[in-house]
Write a protein that binds this DNA or RNA. Structure first.
Lengths: 215, 215
DNA sequence: ACTTGTCCTGTCATGCCGTCAGCTTACCGA
DNA sequence: TCGGTAAGCTGACGGCATGACAGGACAAGT
């Protein structure tokens, strides 16, 4: 069921093959960090991996296909972001702490994977369903948990009923993703990392609970 | 000062030349809407414009260069977004109205220019200063006005002093931009446009004033 | 008609794309 | 030890995009 790794022409990849494949993915990953997506060429990736373009095409249909593999891998890791929200309390001091840790964890994940996430974002915005699905997988892990938190607070009467839990959670997560993508931008702008995070946490807290946090 | 339109090799473009140039830009714009950025080729743009690749290179150094021109044009229009915030009152019912109109105007602008904004976003995220500058120009028009609004409220003691006005404004604007980029995504997700906007307005209001709006 | 400067394109060298046939290497059973 | 088989890799090739140039077409003024 797991599906063995296969080459484009249907052969099953053995040890050596998988190593080569992985090396190509690693090199591609590096290239994405150092040069514009538009300029990443198959031949450069192959050269960097010490192999030939033909070998690349044996494992991936094209650059986009290989990028999807990397993104899929990252999405698996990203599913763990649920931990940042699941089972957290949003009242009192622990609420503020939850917001802070969510911001911290999210920004960190984005910073670690910024190169590939840029491309995923672009693909999703362009309407490519495969990229869109991956983006959803990552964001959903957080959004769904947040949506539940809002609904719970609504059930207790602590949050207005006319708030759409899903829309609110989605907007907040989109905000976190956007700010994370342009972190460097903020610093050039004159906003320091140190003051950015508390403000994001404040917004998250306001959005979820509708109230100012008690720190 | 304005600088006449010039070809790559330094000649000044006359009437006919400018028309051709503009046609190339229009066709490029269209192509960006219909196909992935990575796949937009000079030859396709030229063909669509009923001319040859050589002509394209007479006016632009490459695809990226032409995209920058389009983006610059859009940025001029985007500067008008300031109107959505400047001189608005954030107290009482007019505060809620201000938030609603900001969201409406911003999302609309983004929807009208989504194809080119995708590319600008990517370029900026990749660290290209030219794209970054254009993005700033657009966002600044809103962010600066919002920052002023927050500072004003702080001076009146209506907002906590420990809020960084710039960070708050920047985060809110980043959120709007992100949600706008993935508007289609939200609908697939089960969130309707109709419930998305009020929630965004609510978040904006909460962020700026720290309080729930009076509708 | 002639001149001048703008505008467009045919052509060419270069380099990447994507595919194939065929060679080498590793594994395995007899 | 010795084939046999499948995995793994690459050289080479037609095709296409790139980017540069020089020369021809065109419009406008004299």
């Amino acid at each position: 069921m797991t599906g063995q790794v296969r080459t484009v022409d249907g052969r099953v990849a053995g040890r050596r093959g998988q190593a080569t494949r992985q090396k190509l993915l690693d090199c591609l990953s590096e290239m994405l960090s150092s040069s514009p997506y538009r300029d990443v060429k198959v031949i450069d990736v192959a050269r960097k991996a010490g192999t030939s373009p033909a070998t690349f095409y044996q494992y991936f249909p094209d650059v986009e296909g290989a990028v999807l593999e990397i993104a899929e891998e990252m999405a698996k890791e990203g599913a763990g972001l649920t931990e940042l929200v699941a089972g957290r309390s949003w009242v009192g001091k622990s609420g503020w702490q939850a917001a802070e840790e969510l911001v911290e964890g999210f920004l960190d994940f984005w910073r670690r994977n910024d190169a590939i996430l840029r491309v995923v974002d672009l693909g999703a915005a362009e309407g490519d369903k495969r990229f869109y699905k991956i983006r959803m997988k990552i964001l959903n892990s957080v959004t769904n948990s947040l949506t539940d938190s809002v609904k719970e607070l609504q059930a207790k009467g602590k949050v207005d009923k006319d708030v759409s839990a899903a829309a609110m959670a989605g907007s907040l997560v989109a905000m976190l993703a956007a700010v994370a993508s342009h972190q460097k931008g903020f610093t050039t702008w004159g906003v320091k990392q140190a003051e950015l995070k508390p403000n994001l946490a404040l917004l998250v807290h306001l959005g979820i609970t509708g109230k100012k946090p008690t720190k």
